[in-house]
């Protein structure tokens, strides 16, 4: 159905294939590997250096004396608050999207009502509309709702602009459930709610995970909504915090890089413990 299938699929069938080595591609890969590795090395190593060593020995020097001070001083700068806020925003957005998208996808798949089809069409039209394009009216709405400078102000528009992709992915997941299963349950006298909890919910789990990760990453990384819709230190999320650290630290690059490393840890944990889910989530827009 979808043009593209992604890693999750590919894993099942990995043919041990013998092919002539593709030399140009190998060389290119090596070059790109270096390009990826240098900034990563820079981020990780610099975080352990002292500001003076950084200034004196240049950005790519080996750490002669490792220090953890950059990391410990971050906690005093409100890093924990930013981290908590980011986690709250991410969890809130994911929960809201999943809670409203799955029932809607269920209705769209199982009910041929014209109104539902129309709304599905509207969701499709919203697929590629960038949230930043409507930041002015969003700001107006949020201030009029007296929600300016709250985490909810970030969650609501972030969730709304994640809904189209969530509904598209979930409808395609639900369509793969054979109609006979619904009919069999109905025959046994199951109500809609029972079908939903006993059939739809369990069988759509892979789709929910993909959507959850995709939406979660978007909310986790989001910068514009927090920038425009919050202002106080206590409501600051991580990406905004990083930006703020940039000025606060001035030329103390090691401190800034320690913050960059810490900000990546939650996603790294996700990657280590759920690589397959993360990959499917990243490609949620196109795989299923």
């Amino acid at each position: 159905m979808a043009v593209l299938t992604v890693t999750a699929h590919a894993r099942k069938t990995r043919p041990a294939r013998r092919r002539t080595v593709n030399i140009p591609a190998g060389i290119l890969s090596a070059i790109w590997l270096a390009i990826v590795a240098v900034p990563i090395y820079f981020v990780v190593i610099t975080g352990f250096r002292t500001p003076d060593a950084y200034t004196e020995n240049g950005p790519l020097d080996l750490p002669t004396s490792a220090t953890l001070e950059n990391y410990t001083s971050l906690w005093g700068l409100g890093f924990a608050t930013y981290l908590t806020n980011s986690l709250l925003v991410t969890a809130g957005t994911v929960a809201l999207v999943l809670a409203v998208a799955l029932p809607a996808a269920y209705a769209i798949v199982r009910n041929p009502n014209r109104l539902l089809r129309l709304s599905f069409g509207v969701f499709l039209l919203g697929l590629a509309i960038p949230a930043q394009a409507v930041i002015v009216p969003i700001y107006l709405i949020i201030t009029r709702l007296q929600m300016y400078d709250s985490l909810a102000a970030i969650v609501l528009p972030s969730a709304a602009f994640s809904l189209p992709i969530a509904i598209v992915v979930l409808t395609s997941t639900l369509r793969d459930i054979p109609g006979e299963l619904y009919e069999a349950m109905t025959m046994d006298g199951a109500t809609t709610r029972r079908v939903f909890t006993r059939l739809v919910l369990p069988l759509s789990r892979p789709g929910l995970v993909s959507v959850g990760i995709f939406v979660g990453l978007g909310a986790w990384n989001g910068f514009l909504f927090p920038l425009v819709l919050t202002q106080s230190d206590s409501q600051r999320v991580l990406p905004l915090g990083l930006w703020n650290f940039q000025s606060q630290y001035g030329t103390n690059v090691p401190g800034l890089m320690a913050a960059v490393v810490l900000s990546a840890l939650p996603v790294l944990a996700l990657y280590l413990f759920g690589r397959r889910h993360l990959l499917s989530g990243l490609a949620a827009g196109f795989g299923k």
């Binding site: 005093g76 700068l77 409100g78 608050t81 806020n85 709250l88 929600m147 400078d149 709250s150 985490l151 909810a152 102000a153 106080s232 230190d233 206590s234 409501q235």
Partner: peptide, 15 residues
Amino acid sequence: AAILLTAACGNGGPG
């Protein structure tokens, strides 16, 4: 700032 934040957070949830 951290002290002020803690104080502020004690007041209630976000917003």
